[in-house]
Each structure stands twice: as structure tokens, then as C-alpha cells.
Design a binder for these strands. Structure first.
Lengths: 234, 234
DNA sequence: AGTACGATAGAACACCGTTCGATGCTGTGC
DNA sequence: GCACAGCATCGAACGGTGTTCTATCGTACT
């Protein structure tokens, strides 16, 4: 009985049988390969070897598809976070979690735009949120300070991620122009500004040229964490 | 001679004559009234009383339209920033600028998604960037620290703005549900979680319920600025 | 007057999310 | 063994989007 569905690609070929898992997996694969604009119902259907309308049996609309796909990968990020060793210093643990988050977004730039979009549902986002917050319970803070601290850390991650998630302006996607070259070109434009009008920009253009996004994020995070440490009075 | 174009709505009526200014103004008006999805070439053309393709004479594509519209409003934000009094403490001045930015995004939620998308051009964004950076010149920091400090502050603003710019889930847009009511409902769901699994969430749910976004932003900003002050050694 | 050119516009194209109605497949009660 | 119910699937169509093509108008200059 029912010895068919375990081998869905043998001779059936007429109809495709999916599953929530496969839909989400392929959706994430599309997002990973070519970013948010690549995830269309038609492309996804073709990849699943089925029809367009079939996807709507698993998902109400595109927003829900995005939400579920996002939650799907946040699940694996959650695993990474839970695998973190954890040490004496809660602030260091907060930093480690935040860095893990950032790394995950670097690997999947499209995540930046949808990250933490749905804190409401019983999703993995909430568990991640709890993980961050748990560290603040080890600090001497008020409830409000804890709430704001976690929001601030997520804000730093998202803020850096948005900068990062921006699609490069077409030339680098085509491979005609490397990222460093693109940065260098912008830097050159900055150098040609009037130093009297733009003293600051002139002062940091060398830092901007060829800068590392991870460094930038780490610095922003450390500023926030330093402030937090001060607040906790340790 | 040429006593026509100053009164383009009298009897001409056949053809519409626009200008870069009017295109951008109406585009911003559409964004302000109903958010990003409301800005379509057809809606904009109708508003300008002209054809769809005419807009392409002023603008290469929608991305450029968004960039220019964004830069247009950033110009007025820049005026607000330049009107700021400015005091003894550079960090306080940084805070004032950041708060001005945040307020502008609160007034125009769609800005959050596009803010600081193009630091490359000779735009108003760059001037705003310079304004922020100018304050760091009054602090005892290295060039790299200054670069990272400004990035961090922008990151906090953008991070908070993204949270804020999220379209509410349809019910509140229809007016069927107030924002506070919506927050309260989510809070209630949090309260019903197992306190053993979610100690942090339970501890801050009262803070989350009916929280003020401005407070949240201010706290995140203050953490970063406290860290910066520590770094500058004042 | 004729012409070059800045500026406008309608129609069409390809693609998108979404819906509708019909159709195949599968397990269940007779 | 067979009709039936419902789960799952799909093709085709609809309305809407950004974008392009081509034709045209109006104005200023020679």
C-alpha cells in the first residue's frame, strides 16, 4: 500500500507532490541565489516542478511565504546561537549572539530586510529574542532597561544589516566591477569635494575606502555594549 | 510672448508641462499619503495631469525616482538640522541631530526603508553625513573611530526606523484596530507563554505593552552615545 | 517659413501576485 | 469491486506594475 509517494520522481512526472518543507527550502534557495527579487511564485513553481497555484495551498500569499521562509532560516540561526558556549560575562555573551546574528545576515543579505518582522507569532524569532533577553537577566537592570537594551542590540544588528543588504548598483552584480573598486570610485568622488565644505568626509575617506563591514558592525555593537555595561554598573 | 506656461491650467488642458520640482513634490505627496506602494508611475502621471511615459523624461527608472524623492525630503531635514542651535557638548549635538532625523522618519515612515541608500552622489545625504561627522571632529578620536561612530549613530536611527516603518498588519490600516490594541493583543499572547521557557519575555511584557517608540529609540541612542563618550575619554 | 529639438503622450510588452474552475489522486464506506 | 468525498494540483485568466517604442506637439532659432 501507498508505495508511491516515497519516490515521487520515478515515473509519475505528471503531477508534483510538495510539502511545506520543500516549498520553504526552495524559496530560501531562490533567495540565497539571487536575492529577494528572484523569489517569484512562477520561479518557485518551476523549481518545485509544479504549477503556480499549488503554492497557494501551503501559503496564503507572498507576505506569508516571506514570513515563513524567514522563520525557517531563523530556526537554523537559533541553533547556532544555542550552540554558543556561553561564559562568565553576560555582556560578552550578548556580543557573541549579536555577532552570530550579523554573520548569518552577511551570509544571506536578503534577511536584513525581513529580519524581526514578526515578533508576534509563536515563531523562532521570539525564541531568539528570549535568548538575547536571558543574558540581560544576569545584569543589574530594571525591566525597562532590559527591554530597551535588547531592542538596542537588535537595532544595531538591523541597522548594519540594512546598509549591507542593499543591492549593489548593478555593475557589481554583473561582475563588471568589484566591490572594492566600486567603493574606491565613491571614495574618489569624496576626495574631490571641497575640503572646506566637507572636512569630516575628507578626514575619513581613507577609512571608508576598502572598509570592512564586519569591523563597522563590531564597532557599533561595542559602543552600545559599552553603554550597557556602564548602565549596569559593572 | 510665451505668456502660456505660467498658467498651465487655463485653457491649454491638452498637454501638461511638468518640472523636476513638481514631479518630486507630487511623488513625495503620494508617499506621504499612502506609503511606498502608492507611488506608481500611473498614479503619479494622473496626479500630474499627464501621461505615464513623460515621467521618464525626468527620471531614468523607479529606483532613481525613489532616490531623488528621498533626497528631496532629506534636503528639508537638512534645513532642520542646520537650524539646530548647537551647544558646548559635541555628544549632545550629535544626539540632537539624531533625534531630528528620527522625528523626520516618524513623520514619514516610508523614509526608513530608503534612508541613506545613496551616500555616493552629490546629494543632501552627504551633507547630512558631514553634519554628523563634524561633531566628532570636536572629540578626541582617531579617524577610524570617527568613521565608526557616525556609522553607529546612523545605524541606530535606521535600525529603529525599520522597526517603525513596518506596515501594520492590515487591521490597523483599516481602522478596525488601534495600534495600542494591536500591541496589547501581542502582549497578551506573550503573557500566555510558559514562564519557565520565556522568563525574559514575561519580565518585559508590561514594558512592551503600550511602549513608546520614541523612548525606545532614545534609549538605544543614549547607550551608543554613552559608549562614544567613554571612548572619547571625557 | 522651415527646421531642430525639448517635452509630451498613447499603446504595447513582459512580468508580477492572485483567483477561478476544473481535474487528478487517494483513502474510506458500502 | 466501486462510487464517493476531499485533499492536492494545475492551466488559464485578471488586474496591476515598470518600462519601452514610436509618434506627436510646441517652441525657439536660422
Amino acid at each position: 500500500m501507498a508505495a508511491r509517494q516515497q519516490n515521487r520522481s520515478s515515473q509519475g512526472r505528471r503531477r508534483a507532490s510538495h510539502s511545506m518543507e520543500s516549498v520553504l527550502t526552495e524559496a530560501v534557495a531562490l533567495l540565497d541565489e539571487a536575492g529577494a527579487p528572484a523569489l517569484t511564485f512562477r520561479a518557485l513553481a518551476q523549481r518545485l516542478g509544479g504549477g503556480v497555484a499549488s503554492i497557494y495551498w501551503y501559503v496564503a500569499n507572498k507576505d506569508e511565504l516571506l514570513d515563513l521562509a524567514t522563520d525557517h532560516v531563523i530556526g537554523s540561526i537559533l541553533s547556532d546561537v544555542e550552540a554558543l558556549p556561553g561564559g562568565d560575562d553576560p555582556v560578552d555573551d550578548l556580543r557573541a549572539i549579536a555577532v552570530t546574528l550579523f554573520d548569518a545576515i552577511v551570509a544571506r543579505p536578503w534577511l536584513g530586510a525581513y529580519f524581526m518582522r514578526n515578533t508576534n507569532a509563536q515563531s523562532n524569532s521570539l525564541r531568539l529574542y528570549e535568548h538575547l533577553g536571558a543574558q540581560t537577566l544576569r545584569l543589574d537592570l530594571t525591566a525597562r532597561q532590559r527591554f530597551h537594551a535588547v531592542s538596542a542590540i537588535i537595532g544595531v544588528v538591523v541597522g548594519s544589516a540594512v546598509d549591507l543588504g542593499q543591492e549593489p548598483p548593478q555593475e557589481v552584480l554583473d561582475g563588471h566591477l568589484g566591490r572594492d573598486e566600486f567603493l574606491g570610485r565613491a571614495a574618489q568622488a569624496w576626495r574631490e569635494l571641497d575640503p572646506a565644505d566637507f572636512p569630516f568626509v575628507h578626514g575619513i575617506v581613507d577609512e571608508f575606502d576598502g572598509h570592512d563591514d564586519a569591523d563597522q558592525f563590531r564597532s557599533a555593537l561595542d559602543l552600545t555594549l559599552a553603554g550597557l555595561r556602564l548602565q549596569a554598573g559593572t
